[in-house]
């Protein structure tokens, strides 16, 4: 079994699905990146599928190379882009346009309002109730509009 071996080959990694800490399948590993000078592997590239950009993941973000999957040690912040943002009553406020993170934790999200104006506002993490298939905000949330 591949996982029992201390040394694995590129065949054991390429084509396998990359899974983040939420258990979400991000895509398929399509490239291995190797440092020519140090002769060490530095990361992998994940093919996220149609219309999505490829994602480079550094070695420090890889938890282990499993039998059927590659486990990542973090959830990529980019994953939240495009998610619906709902207030505590379920009203759609807009979509996530950007994520600011510090030390791998989401600090604030930039939300693009629905409608023609596409105004943007910031949501600090303290006002975020949960992030799943959409971002649910707390009752305490008040929008801070970003000047254009």
């Amino acid at each position: 079994m591949a996982s029992k071996k201390k040394i694995i080959t590129s065949d054991d990694i390429l084509g396998k699905e990359a899974v983040d800490t939420d258990g979400e399948i991000l895509g398929v590993v399509m490239k291995l990146h190797i440092d020519k000078e140090n002769k060490k592997m530095v990361g992998i590239t994940i093919d996220q599928g149609f219309m999505k950009p490829d994602l480079f993941v550094g070695m420090s973000y890889i938890k282990n190379f499993g039998v059927d999957t590659v486990f990542l040690s973090r959830v990529p912040a980019d994953k939240f882009k495009g998610l619906d943002v709902l207030d505590s009553k379920g009203k759609l406020l807009g979509k996530v346009a950007g994520v600011k993170s510090q030390r791998h934790k989401v600090v604030e999200i930039i939300v693009s309002k629905k409608g023609i104006t596409r105004d943007r506002f910031l949501v600090p993490s303290k006002h975020i109730e949960e992030i799943g298939e959409s971002v649910v905000l707390k009752k305490s949330f008040k929008a801070v509009k970003i000047e254009k």
Binding site: G90, E130, I131, E133, S134, V136
Partner: peptide, 10 residues
């Protein structure tokens, strides 16, 4: 009407 879970899932 749409039903959304605590973590924002449909």
């Amino acid at each position: 009407r749409k039903v959304v879970s605590k973590s924002g899932n449909f």
